[in-house]
């Protein structure tokens, strides 16, 4: 198992490196840079502009800039945000926890919905429960998050005025009221993301469970006189989770993409909304930093998936 993990880790590093090369090149080739504004500003003489460009090495070849960025990044220097006038790492680190909390809880919610609903639906295929679950799941992943998000805001924030529609990272106070404020503002984004994820996950769980439930070893388990609950939970679910883990891991980039939209709708001050504002401001170091953090997170979740995979299926870690 530890050998298997080590192998996975060793694969993760070159992938990260590759991603950073691609990201850097694309950003370098993209039109517009942070000095564009200076270029059109008549108050700044061309010599000053030129001196600044040289100072920041903006006109060096791409690969020189890439290696400069890489060595600096490895030393913990992620660059400077021209727009916000803070270090990029500080800016990102301040916002990562919010994103992780929102995404983490929504994935948890998705799992809590999808697992029982998918499994119960699969044990009673074409029953009323199954059909209702299927319909809801279909609706759930057909509705885009920006639509459900706005709908929730309309109902719960504007119409009923129960929940705040702006997410604040710096809620005042402490103790229970503070926690309650946090929960209240997280409810809607988590619900929107979680149910969207949960809908497609339910379908995965259902079909994976249906595939497993008719296998020979499930009949063997029944022939042993085990309780039906034990047959399902021990012998069916563990096996049907194997493909689900893979699918969920493959979906992670889409999850982060969805999180960017959701953060935008609910004004959640996470790295998703940071990315959007950085793009609007042409703030290249921040764009680079945030996308790279997204890449790290996706690879991290894939590693977690690999660990789960190895734990669920002993054949994997023995290979």
């Amino acid at each position: 198992m530890s050998q298997y993990l080590l192998r996975r880790l060793l694969i993760a590093l070159p992938s990260l490196l590759g991603i950073s090369v691609v990201l850097f090149t694309i950003l370098a080739l993209a039109p517009g840079d942070p000095f564009e504004e200076l270029a059109t500003n008549p108050a700044i003489p061309p010599e000053v502009r030129e001196a600044l460009r040289v100072k920041f090495g903006l006109d060096d070849p791409v690969w020189t800039r890439y290696f400069r960025w890489l060595t600096a990044m490895l030393q913990g220097d992620w660059g400077f945000s021209f727009a916000s006038r803070v270090d990029v790492d500080e800016l990102i680190l301040g916002r990562v926890p919010t994103t992780l909390i929102v995404i983490g809880s929504s994935q948890l919610l998705a799992l809590l919905v999808a697992l029982p609903v998918g499994v119960i639906a699969a044990t009673r295929p074409y029953s009323i429960f199954d059909q209702i679950a299927n319909t809801l799941a279909f609706i759930g992943f057909s509705l885009p998050t920006f639509f459900t998000g706005l709908l929730l805001i309309l109902v719960f924030s504007i119409y009923l005025d129960w929940l705040p529609f702006v997410y604040r990272a710096d809620v005042p106070g402490s103790g229970w009221p503070w926690l309650w404020e946090h929960i209240k503002q997280a409810i809607m984004p988590v619900l929107v993301l979680g149910l969207f994820q949960g809908a497609s996950m339910t379908r995965y769980v259902r079909s994976a469970t249906l595939d497993v439930i008719r296998l020979d070893y499930v009949t063997t388990a029944r022939s042993k006189g085990l309780r039906e609950r034990v047959v399902i939970v021990k012998h069916v679910v563990r096996n049907s989770l194997i493909p689900v883990v893979t699918l969920v891991a493959l979906q992670m980039p889409a999850v982060f993409g969805g999180a960017i939209v959701t953060e935008q709708i609910f004004r959640v001050p996470g790295i998703g909304s940071l990315l959007i504002s950085a793009i609007l401001a042409n703030d290249t170091p921040v764009i680079m930093g945030v996308t790279f953090v997204f890449a790290i997170l996706v690879i991290l979740f894939n590693l977690i998936a690999d660990v789960l995979y190895g734990w669920l299926d002993p054949r994997i870690s023995y290979r």
Binding site: L215, D216, Y217, T219, T220, A221, H235, R238, N239, L312, D313, P314, R315
Partner: peptide
């Protein structure tokens, strides 16, 4: 059962 390869749970 007939199929020893599939009658045991692999995990």
């Amino acid at each position: 059962f007939q199929e020893p390869m599939t009658s045991l749970n692999p995990v």
